[in-house]
Design a protein around this nucleic acid. Structure first.
Lengths: 235, 235
DNA sequence: GGTCTGTAATGATCTATGTGATTATGCTAT
DNA sequence: ATAGCATAATCACATAGATCATTACAGACC
């Protein structure tokens, strides 16, 4: 799928970015705020361990989880161009991240093309995921949203080399409430879909563990809202 | 909102990118496909006149408009890193766009930091809009989605210098069906919300023309799903 | 001038998803 | 060991928005 000649550049870019970190990696506990909504963002982060979520809390307390971050991701790149942050970033699990000063990264990007490419790549990849997310929230019903989430999170972990492609299960450190905030559904309804997946022997979700019972069946359920790449890369 | 020292770089980047175009600008008619879903994308486009939409058609014929593009936007930047395209790009009105070879742009990005910054900026800006879109589709009700769309499209046109900030109206070249595809609603329901806006004397939408009657009232309706920047920049 | 075809307007139902409320099931802490 | 609290599982009921069907209108084309 990706233009192949890029891999080497991306790895160099990653190393160069990590080298810019001004201090030791920072650790966060589950539920900590890595960055707060409304903060003037001074830093970009490279997530090295654990999961984070970009969370928007509306004035009337509705909550939407906009995106998930897994190890290897650059977070809050917006800080390079935009002074103010509309969302918070929360740790979903114990997290380790390196902070990089936004101005320093921006300067480095101008001098080191590997960094510029690495950053653009991250942005393009996030954009692809957001496009899919818009499709799912705009057109997908509850079951499609849930199934697509379970599958694409897995695909992402596989691609990042964090889980074995053959494994039929993975750890998802989110409560049902958080999953419902991610999917734009109520926790009750997410629970109903989970029950249905269990009853139809497609997958089980419990104690932060997703387990696939009938991978193809689940993929069939999600198929309408998977993009061509995901449909292929599913197994 | 934006880190101020950027403006000059962005303008230089824009000029440098336009200079890379390998031919005369291409023209498209309303409803033409600038790029087809599933195409291997060879080009990035800079839109100079008219409106385009990024459109995803699902296998069962559901349709989601993922994003809108207005003059000045770079379209299909994904082509630089990803060989295959999951969405089509349609002209919503007569369109003029310059095509830039993706490989050439990628090479130029590595040599000219202004181009790298311009591209990253476009990506970050699109990402911001997509984040808002996820919030609206995930949490906003029909009226909030409609009102937020009317306001943010206007804000975007103002920022691009395409309409007068004081004007109480603008041209929106979309049918109610297309608007419903953008908002993840049915055309019937969009029509109902339009009627409500008319009855409550907030705005009128007809013959491709959006007209604000009570700007603050509309902004109040949309407020929960506007980000801090948009809430401020509304007038 | 009339006939098509796309677009818009609106009413009458239906349904997927939300709301509210209750009970069960763990952890964590004392 | 027990109290307390977050999470999860379900039920009964409410509703926003979808679906189906009809009518009206406007521009394009003959």
């Amino acid at each position: 799928m990706h233009r192949p000649e890029l891999r080497a550049i991306l790895e160099r870019g990653d190393r160069a970015i990590t080298a810019l970190a001004n201090a030791e990696p920072t650790r966060f506990h589950t539920r900590d705020e890595v960055a707060a909504q409304g903060d003037g963002l001074a830093h970009v982060y490279r997530l090295t361990e654990g999961w984070c979520a970009r969370v928007r809390t509306l004035p009337d307390a509705r909550v939407q989880i906009i995106a998930l971050y897994i190890p290897g991701d650059l977070m809050a790149l917006k800080a390079m161009f935009v002074a103010e942050q509309a969302d918070a970033i929360h740790a979903l699990s114990p997290v380790t991240a390196v902070a990089i000063d936004q101005a320093r990264l921006r300067a480095a990007m101008i001098e080191d093309p590997d960094i510029a490419v690495r950053i653009s790549f991250q942005l393009v990849d996030e954009e692809r995921r957001l496009h899919n997310r818009v499709v799912r929230l705009g057109q997908g019903d509850a079951a499609e949203r849930v199934a697509a989430m379970l599958l694409t999170v897995r695909a992402r972990l596989v691609r990042a080399g964090l889980i074995d492609p053959k494994a039929r299960h993975y750890r998802l450190p989110m409560t049902q409430v958080q999953i419902s905030e991610f999917l734009g559904l109520t926790p009750v309804h997410v629970n109903r879909i989970f029950r249905r997946l269990r009853e139809e022997k497609l997958a089980t979700i419990g104690s932060s563990e997703v387990r696939f019972l009938d991978f193809d069946g689940l993929a069939r359920l999600a198929a309408p809202v998977l993009d061509a790449f995901e449909r292929g890369a599913a197994h």
